[in-house]
Design a protein around this nucleic acid. Structure first.
Lengths: 402, 402
DNA sequence: ACTATTTCGTCATGGCGGTTTACAAATTAG
DNA sequence: CTAATTTGTAAACCGCCATGACGAAATAGT
């Protein structure tokens, strides 16, 4: 049981669904809900003019959405203009909730987000998951999920789906973790381990982080490259407002882009992969530190204290990132590059050399690099919001099960 | 005046067109036409079962398409099965024609393709365009276009649009050539120079080559990387059956992916770009040859004759391509890589080292590399077919102007 | 040969969905 | 206090596809 994937869409009317009146209604329901969700309280007339339908049609669609519990009537608008004031509509704060979960190397986190985009419940636990078997981890996660769901239900919400962010590669079935090196999981089907009453989606944390950036970031472009790192270096590619996943779902493996063709060998089989220069392990080694808990915090702390070894290591990692990103930018021509996840904490020391390298290698104006405002919260929020987006994208499907 | 772009589509019902019954009809017309075009002569009933509409609905849609001159009734099917035989429908051979044009470094070519995908008229001229001003080139091209259009009209076709392939970067307006190093053109608006009675599209030759591969290649995947080269090295990215163009339309600049971070400087400002290793100029220099006419043919000839210098140069270029492609494959996870354009002629000497490099650097099964069957014909055919696809994707628009 | 069966294309009917038109309600402008 | 403007709803209408029935044209069985 899997929810929508927010992918880049296929082109043309190749072999799409038949176009019937019911489909039309479904899409128009989605358009209305989407508009109200995006542009705050809005009258029926305002919605109508925005999406190009008539007031009458919108009225009928709104009625249905109100009956489904997805929209709420807030009452008359405060009028500033001439004419009868409209009745403000807003997405419901008591309808479906998106449950997001994150499996990190040393923590588990779960949260519930309502249609308005607000976090309504939250649970977190510090756990050392490295090398732990999937079973117990999932069991512990399930407990947190139950707690969050119960809390959300207490506030009048009902769970519309569960999305789990994992630090690894996920197959296109959005259920199987193909490879998660930090956890040492291989071909683990979380769908089987996490039987739930509502739809389940599993995805890479970088992907969810990028979606969070796309949906929640301020003034975020439509096309960007979202780089994040825990131990490996992952990137998520957002193209035309959708994720580019690749044939097998493995797109975005920035960590294995060759940076120095005859550099040090990499477990992936290649040589001189970015990970050998900017991966967490490589940076720690270059800085003369050891692997341990909260490695990013350690690096950031030392760098802030002025540790020259750490700073040099980060400068060099930034330069290597710059080289790999130059390639990526040349290939994809994104509007910007966003540093997210763990990287956002190290940005002050990575950015200068990264941008210098990118600048130096670009003829015209270089692609702007920014740092995620969401930081390490990105993946969890992205996961929860992906469920909410699923509802916004097809309210009719949800109404049937409400 | 620009035609559809066959891009990767935006995700979700963000701010799309209102969904009205006319739109539904339009899309269903497209589905019917698409199906008949793709699966040969088909009865109304067969179409209906394929696209999921009823026979009655399809009948009405087909009537309209026949009235527009886009479909033809071929007469009763030869019956093999029980029951009344259907009446075979096929796309018309006398309807709209897609006019494709190509501006090469040393040639101009124009062709007309009908709805059935057949080339119905063609003109070509050997011209040295390097460094020539846009004006005269376009004038000469226009003459060829007129000749081809006249020939097509003689066969009962009418031009539905003109698509021009150029060896350079094209802005997203599908009209302005931002940079064409081989021609030495900069910011040239072909829309202004080529005023025509029908819609005009301009695009990179690599993009059109990739579309040709997508539409005409046998068993071509849905997601692939199409590499082509004249002097620069361009790639086109096909994702989910659509082109990935990038924000400014500059995606696919494989030639400037860094292969050796401190390699020789490149005019683009970077160092060690792929072009410095596998660009035509670099290869010729490495092989000890001079720049001249038909450089690819020269290289291929010498290599076939066993010239060891040329073979070594091509081997090394292949290896460099392999490194750059490793990065691209890691980022995009395509189903395959296709060598097209000029590269297809050199494939025998490039491929071994290219594949070896790609293999060596990939953990799992390496991404398969194939050679375009279309070769240098790709861009021209892709251009002409892009116009035809525009018709197939929205027959109603064309019917209005027929 | 003749009938039963199957499939095709079409027609009449009906339901559904958005548009059009009209109108009452609620506000501002003069 | 009236005119103008805007909102939301209701009724009539139109377009599009679905449904069901029917004649036409083939095969299968007797």
């Amino acid at each position: 049981m899997t929810a929508p994937l927010h992918d880049t869409h296929p082109a043309g009317p190749g072999r799409s669904l038949p176009d019937t009146q019911q489909g039309m209604r479904r899409r128009n329901l989605a358009r209305v809900l989407h508009t109200v969700s995006a542009e705050g309280p809005l009258s029926r007339a305002a919605v109508a003019s925005r999406i190009g339908l008539t007031r009458a049609a919108v009225s009928s669609l709104v009625d249905e959405l109100i009956r489904s519990g997805l929209l709420e009537e807030l009452g008359p608008e405060r009028p500033g203009r001439v004419g009868r004031p409209g009745s403000a509509l807003a997405v419901s704060g008591h309808g479906p909730a998106g449950i997001g979960a994150e499996i990190g190397v040393d923590h588990l986190a779960v949260c519930a987000v309502d249609l308005r985009g607000r976090v309504r419940a939250r649970a977190e636990r510090h756990v050392a998951n490295r090398g732990r078997a999937p079973g117990p981890v999932i069991e512990e996660l399930t407990e947190l999920v139950h707690r969050v769901v119960a809390e959300a239900q207490g506030e009048g919400l009902w769970p519309a789906g569960l999305a789990v962010a994992v630090p690894g590669l996920v197959a296109r079935d959005a259920s199987t973790v193909v490879r998660a090196p930090n956890l040492d999981w291989h071909d683990t089907d979380l769908g089987a381990l996490l039987p739930s009453a509502y739809p389940l989606t599993v995805d890479n944390e970088a992907n969810f982080g990028a979606l969070a950036e796309l949906w929640l970031g301020d003034a975020t472009p439509h096309d960007f490259l979202h780089v994040s790192a825990e131990i490996g270096i992952g990137a998520a590619l957002v193209v035309a407002g959708g994720l580019l996943r690749g044939t097998r779902g493995f797109a975005g493996e920035l960590g294995h882009v060759p940076v120095q063709p005859e550099g040090p060998p990499c477990p992936c089989g290649g040589r001189g992969c970015l990970e050998q220069y900017a991966g967490e392990e490589a940076v720690l080694r270059a800085a003369g530190l050891e692997l341990g808990e909260d490695r990013v915090g350690l690096l950031a702390g030392r760098a802030a204290d002025g540790d020259e070894d750490v700073r040099r290591a980060l400068r060099e990692a930034g330069a290597a990132l710059g080289v790999a990103l130059t390639g990526a930018v040349n290939l994809l021509d994104p509007e910007s590059v966003v540093l997210g996840g763990a990287l956002s904490g190290l940005a002050p020391w990575l950015l200068p050399s990264l941008e210098a390298e990118l600048d130096r290698r670009t003829a015209g104006p270089a692609c702007p690099v920014s740092v995620s405002r969401l930081g390490p919260e990105g993946p969890l929020l992205g996961a929860a919001h992906s469920v909410i987006r699923g509802v916004l994208d097809d309210p009719a499907a949800v109404a049937e099960r409400a």
